[in-house]
Design a protein around this nucleic acid. Structure first.
Lengths: 214, 214, 214, 214
DNA sequence: TATGAATGAGAATTCATTCAT
DNA sequence: GATGAATGAATTCTCATTCAT
């Protein structure tokens, strides 16, 4: 009986937290961490300000929770998409697709996950990177598999992943800065084309920059 | 005589402004716009608080001036590097090199030009994009030239440029988030390799994603 | 139940506002609008600085609220005194008495309602005049009645009222400037005497300046 | 020779002071003491800010000098007008005329001499009253003369003067607050009429308020 | 002597956080 | 538990006054 009550309680608490996080995402996204106003968050969550602080000790922790939840859900989305195919190149395709698709669906997280980094450089970065590298390990396996299957050139996989993640972040970032014109996912095909095959046409010239595909 | 005095004055004013901007870059970079403290900026510039406001009407204008100076100098650096070579592909190489090299030399501008965008989405974005697209027009010409010389595949040049700028921003961004490990310019070669020739080895597979170079 | 709570709340809010206004009257009166210091007001109200701004968005609004309350209460006092008598001349007597009596009881308002006008010439003047002319319309009726009853000479009533209000303001003003020596209400009788019958004794001489009473 | 140089110097200094005071009157009148800006005053005087402070140790002293000069000139104007006639009642007429005429010509002084009093209640008031009572002594003599010539009723002259000065200040004040509509001097005749003969027509009623003129 | 750049004390205002109800 | 009124530290910005040139 007690246990059941506790469970109910837990669910209630989780609901409250979700309620607050959902409001916080919007407000932080609109105004950035500093300008975001706890009053706004409380109002948007239809809760008293005190309640917000009951569930999240302070503004910073609330912000980090928003970041955390965002990163978790990004990671989950990517991971579950990857599962759907087995070919390494197709997996990479899925990564790119699901990354862009995620931020298209979660526009509010762009400002928070990408721009606001600097606000917490030292504090958040590590947490961010944990998540990020949690991903990265899985992704590294995919590239290794692609390599061992002879699908991709012999390159330093860490560097390739750096380029890929930079590329994806950068694309999302540019889309945001430019005012979210067009669909973000429309950029998938050009990214795939370039990331997979580059822009150079001429074999000879290509050689200068690395082993060109034959 | 008077004119000479005016000139001296102008130089003095420019020096003061530089002194303040140099301090502001550091402080804004460390703390972001909102948390950055005008007192800190004044102290770092070894000037009175009032003096800072004498030269920059308010914090926002000071921040924008920092952004402006940064973008100008980024643009100038890239443009002057481009001039040095004539081959379009080499010009693209220079863009990539000088972009990364710029942010390696101006670490403080990363936080300001890349992360803090969101703070001023509406206010700065346009100014930013003017600068940015000032660049872009020149860069577009380079790609067009490359295209007409048959150096690169028939692709939508606008999209290619989006990918390139996203890629560069993203690489710089990742370097910053990861704590600026290693030299940023060390990433030039992998970027070139991927951007020019892609990661795929196998011709057949490549075809799926676009015209592979022959 | 809810309604009762709301009512309690309203009363609480009104009490707080009163508390702040009571402090503000004193401080504004002492220092004038510009020099008055919100910190002082808060301390005198025994409230935190933030609380003052919670109830009055900014210093200007606080000041205007003080003015408003003062004018309202001046008007109410005069109006309620007027009601007590029916003879027009007695009503005029009441106006003069209650005007001086009001400022004797509300010394702090002298500085605010009379001296500080200039601070807000454009902003407040209209609001002030609304109040003031709210009064004036009622007062005009009294003079008209006096006229139609043949109690006063045929004069331009608007001009007479201008003189009366000027006279009253001026008397209060002089009392303040002179350091509030003596009771302000002691001046009622001389004002009545002069305003009603003038200073001139000699009939013939009086004629030069207007219809002398016969 | 030296003396002549000193004289020249004195004249120069007086000119500079005049230049500054002329500017200060305008600025203080526009903005009140606190809001008035020494920069504005300097610019309007076409002098450097440092020069202003060379001639007037600080803002307060400058303000007081403006007040002083204003009061002097008011006093002089009134006094010189009084000289022109010999009949006491005509002298009183002249006082009223010249007072209003002075403020009509020196609109900027209204805000300074009348409204801003409160700013310096303690500091300026005494200086103000010296001037004022300097006047008052002369004026008292006039009323005494009128009394001894049997021109005016037996009244407490001090009180009568208080009413007159209050009345004049009040009239000027109202004119200012109302936005200086019409000519201030147009109000002279109604003031004279009321001050000299009152508003009451009926002899019997008048008696209640004091000895009515016969 | 004249100047205006430099200054920093001082003022208004904001807002995360607390805590009595 | 939930609330939101109260708070005061922190922040931006102003401006009288100084002083080196």
């Amino acid at each position: 009986m007690k246990i059941k009550g506790d469970d109910k309680m837990k669910i209630l608490i989780e609901n409250r937290k979700k309620q607050i996080l959902d409001a916080a995402v919007i407000v932080f996204s609109k105004d950035g961490f500093s300008r975001a106003n706890t009053d706004d968050i409380a109002k948007r969550a239809k809760l008293g300000k005190g309640t917000v602080f009951r569930y999240f000790k302070n503004k910073k922790i609330l912000f980090c929770s928003v970041v955390d939840r965002g990163l978790d859900s990004l990671k989950n989305e990517i991971m579950s998409e990857i599962e759907k195919v087995s070919d390494p190149l197709e997996k990479i395709e899925k990564i790119i697709e699901s990354y862009l698709s995620f931020f298209e669906k979660n526009k509010n997280l762009i400002g928070i996950l990408i721009h606001e980094q600097s606000s917490f450089q030292k504090r958040i970065a590590s947490q961010y990177l944990n998540h990020y590298y949690g991903n990265v390990d899985r992704i590294k396996l995919i590239f290794k598999e692609a390599l061992s299957q002879g699908l991709i050139k012999r390159m330093d996989i860490n560097k390739v992943i750096t380029v890929l993640t930079g590329l994806l972040n950068g694309i999302v970032y540019m889309w945001q800065v430019e005012g979210r014109k067009g669909k973000l996912t429309d950029r998938v095909s050009i990214i795939l084309e370039i990331f997979f095959t580059g822009i150079i046409k001429n074999k000879a010239r290509g050689k200068k920059y690395g082993r060109i595909s034959v």
